[in-house]
Design a protein around this nucleic acid. Structure first.
Length: 404
RNA sequence: GUAGGCGUAGUUCAGUUGGUAGAGCACCUGUUUGUGGCACAGGUUGUCGCGGGUUCGAGCCCCGUCGCCUACCCCA
């Protein structure tokens, strides 16, 4: 027997229904906010992710499905969605259309070579949105509001964490300050943190090590070191969240794992799905378009993890629907066949090809959750009729086959 | 990469100090020669993950191996 690869999962029955429900709900909401669909390739040049997500990130450093293709190109399966969308945005020269706004939503598989566990697969699915050309913090808020709408429509609860990651003006001086602080206590920090002091000091902030976290309580906070513009944007965001009654927590250690974020960063978290608790995350990335050779274009976006959300959504009960057709004599299936074809124009129809006793047909109708069970037996054949039972009302009628 | 747990029927699981495999659910049949869900009665289903070892005898003990799950890590 051949099994699916480790960390890759098949979805069927209620699981696949839940998957589709989440995607269609997210699409419905994002369309209300003016987003349109963008489809980008799963396979991209490795360079794209090195330059956007960042070589210092774990995603690029050790988790990519990367290989040389038959044309000797260094390629990889996308580990996230934003880079491809931005590449596409630049390739289509949308960055030259200054003062225009572009809003895209996407969904599809992402690949990261990690050890699978609850809420973490090697092939997983994200739904995401990217808004280009809008520098206003109102847009940051609107995106958060939209995610809230999606979760509300899906009927799931969450905690919202926000932070500001600063901009090219305030981040570098803060970074220096932080490196100074970390170097002073480096002997007490864990191995990973020591390595990160040089490679990516900001990531030290969300180290899970308890001892490190204790030391970090006295570390300089970026939120206290923002430039005027970043600070007023963050205050405005907080004000908007308050006025719209969206609960939030400021988490000064919230650092996006991808290098391209700046200013607003946020994460939606659920505490009911195991240790992989982030169900959506995103923020502003005003410099990414530039990194990928486009004209400087402000942008904000987010992605949500469909599999993680699947753990949280309850599907509404499915009601009985459509017709089940069955014959009690083998020779009568031919009579049933055109009736089924005709009925499918308007209703869901299940046609049983094998002749069975009435009782077996009723059971069969139950099994496919049909509303009506329609059967032709000897009597009906002689009279040119069909017997129909409403499985909900428990009522039955016999009508002419031509009226069916 | 590291650590812990688990692999027995379609499924969820039980299986005693080693003695030749079981239950619920599901499925099929019947009670009802043409009336579903409920009830009752009966029935079908196994490479006990795989390979080796110990033993008269292994689902059980030992070694190896593969797979799954959870956690670290990372992140959606």
């Amino acid at each position: 027997m051949i099994n699916a690869l480790r960390g890759m999962k098949d979805l069927t029955f209620e699981e696949s229904e839940r998957f589709v429900h989440i995607v269609t709900t997210a699409i419905k909401v994002s369309k209300k906010y003016g987003y349109s669909y963008i489809e980008t390739p799963i396979l991209e040049e490795t360079k794209l992710f090195k330059r956007s997500v960042g070589e210092s990130s774990d995603i690029v450093g050790k988790e990519m499905y990367q290989f040389m293709d038959k044309g000797d190109n260094d390629v990889c399966m996308r580990p996230e969605g934003t880079a491809g969308v931005v590449r596409s945005f630049v390739q289509a020269k949308l960055d030259r259309r200054q003062n225009e706004k572009f809003k895209f939503y996407y969904y599809g598989p992402m690949f990261r070579y990690e050890r699978p566990q609850k809420g973490r697969l090697r092939e997983f699915h994200q739904f995401g949105c990217e808004s280009f050309g809008e520098a206003s913090v109102y847009e940051d808020f609107t995106i958060i509001q939209m995610i809230g709408d999606i979760f509300k429509a899906l009927g799931i609860g969450y905690d919202l964490q926000i932070n500001s990651l600063g901009c090219p003006e305030c981040m570098p001086p803060y970074r220096k300050k932080l490196i100074g602080f970390l170097t002073e206590c480096k002997d007490e920090l864990c191995e990973d943190c020591n390595r990160r002091i040089d490679t990516n000091p900001i990531r030290v902030l969300d180290c899970k090590n308890e001892k490190c976290q204790t030391l970090l309580t006295n570390s300089p906070k970026l939120i206290d070191n923002l430039c005027d513009s970043c600070e007023s944007d963050f205050e405005k965001l907080v004000k908007l969240l308050k006025s719209e009654n969206i609960d939030y927590v400021v988490d000064t250690n919230l650092v996006r794992g991808l290098d391209y974020y700046s200013k607003t960063a946020f994460e939606f978290v659920s505490n009911n799905i195991g240790s992989q608790s982030a169900i959506a995350g995103g923020g502003r990335y005003d410099r990414l378009v530039e990194f990928l050779d486009g004209k400087p274009t402000p942008a904000v976006g987010f992605a949500l993890g469909i599999e993680r959300i699947m753990e949280l959504v309850q599907m509404p009960e499915v009601e009985r629907e459509g017709y089940y057709l069955g014959a009690m004599e083998e020779s009568l299936v031919d009579t049933l066949f055109p009736l089924a074809s005709k009925k499918r124009a308007t209703d869901k129809v299940t046609l049983e090809y094998a002749a069975k006793k009435l009782k077996a047909h009723l059971k069969g109708a139950d099994k496919v959750n049909a509303r009506y069970c329609a059967v032709i037996g000897e009597d009906e054949m002689q009279n040119g009729t069909i017997w129909i039972k409403d499985l909900v009302e428990k009522s039955e009628t016999t009508i002419s086959q031509s009226d069916f």
